[in-house]
């Protein structure tokens, strides 16, 4: 019951946050010094044609009016134009991209697979890699292995992702010709090719993020290994493997999961570089495309969706935190 009330409260907060994010996004991008109608006016453009295009796309109304239309579309759907050329966007309508001739929700649906594949694979890899490296490092504190892992991880934390990604492509893709240098094969089409095309981005992302997790795990592990109940467990004569695996690791995972949830949300929402570097067309690429082409509805829709993912991840983490760690009062 307590958990339920907590969840309801957080849910309400979540919706409020999304509302604010959407208003801010709308306002900021409305102020951009570019007129989407002008960009789709054609060549040569005349003032009359410009006005017609603007009216058709609904850009002739003041920004708050456009925002309200947008909100209304989510519940009631929208239609643009009139006569036999009417373009409908069924509820829930998160906007309609005239440049790509599709509702924003359709576009998000068709791009999310790439981003999700990228994020999920990398996350598994970095979580396993990071947590195990961190654990080993903590257990063998001060050893050569520990120092190597920590040096590698601080280098990983310090390296910019775009640089590592591009060097990875040049080295493994072109010079050694070992892995594909971009492109995406859907999982349903060919699972082997799917994984093969994703292997390089996974490794790059995992290398960079695992560093952070290794350091986090090591720090937490050291802290926990010093606590009483571990000493008790050891005193009881439990094997070291069991002490670490059963008792320590479980407690280390609480903060790791927190960071992980937020990272995953951020990764899904802002896979902008990775996708660009590896020529993959996920949500990040869609977003950059929208920015470059001043595709306002797409921009707002994707930004909002990304924010939704981040907020959702935070929400899940909050819940999980409450469940995993009874010391946290909800």
């Amino acid at each position: 019951m307590r958990l339920l009330r907590f969840a309801a409260g957080r849910l309400a907060g979540m919706i409020l946050v999304l509302l604010i994010v959407s208003i801010l996004t709308y306002a900021v991008f409305y102020l951009l010094p570019a007129d989407p109608a002008q960009l789709s006016c054609g060549k040569p453009c005349t003032p009359q044609r410009l006005a017609d295009a603007r009216a058709f796309m609904g850009y002739d109304a003041p920004w708050w009016r456009q925002y309200l239309d947008f909100l209304g579309g989510i519940f009631a759907g929208r239609s643009f134009g009139s006569g036999s050329a009417v373009v409908r966007c069924a509820a829930p309508c998160f906007g309609y991209s005239f440049r790509l001739d599709a509702p924003v929700s359709t576009l998000i649906a068709s791009h999310i697979g790439v981003t999700f594949s990228l994020a999920a694979g990398a996350a598994v890899l970095w979580l396993v890699l990071g947590v195990s490296a961190g654990t080993v490092s903590a257990v063998r504190r001060g050893s050569l292995l520990d120092r190597t892992v920590m040096t590698a991880s601080i280098a990983g934390v310090s390296a910019p992702a775009y640089l590592v990604g591009l060097l990875g492509i040049l080295l493994f893709g072109f010079t050694l010709d070992m892995v594909p240098v971009g492109g995406y094969v859907p999982l349903a089409e060919n699972p082997v090719q799917w994984a093969w095309h994703l292997i390089l981005p996974w490794c790059v992302l995992a290398f960079l993020s695992a560093a952070l997790y290794a350091r986090l795990t090591r720090g937490q592990m050291l802290e926990i290994l010093g606590e009483d109940y571990i000493r008790t467990a050891r005193a009881k004569g439990l094997g070291e493997r069991r002490v670490i695996g059963r008792h320590a690791l479980r407690n280390v995972l609480v903060p790791v999961v927190t960071v992980f949830g937020m990272d995953l949300g951020g990764l899904l929402g802002g896979a902008v570089i990775t996708e660009r570097v590896f020529s993959m067309q996920g949500l990040g690429a869609l977003l950059m495309d929208a920015v470059g082409n001043v595709d306002l509805p797409l921009l707002v829709g994707v930004t909002l969706f990304a924010a939704f993912l981040i907020v959702l991840a935070n929400f899940a983490v909050d819940l999980l935190y409450g469940v995993l760690d009874p010391r946290i009062s909800l």
Binding site: I20, V21, G270, V272, L287, A307, V311
Partner: peptide
């Protein structure tokens, strides 16, 4: 809100 924003964009 700030954490929820895709800040780069």
């Amino acid at each position: 809100v700030l954490f929820g924003f895709p800040t780069l964009i």
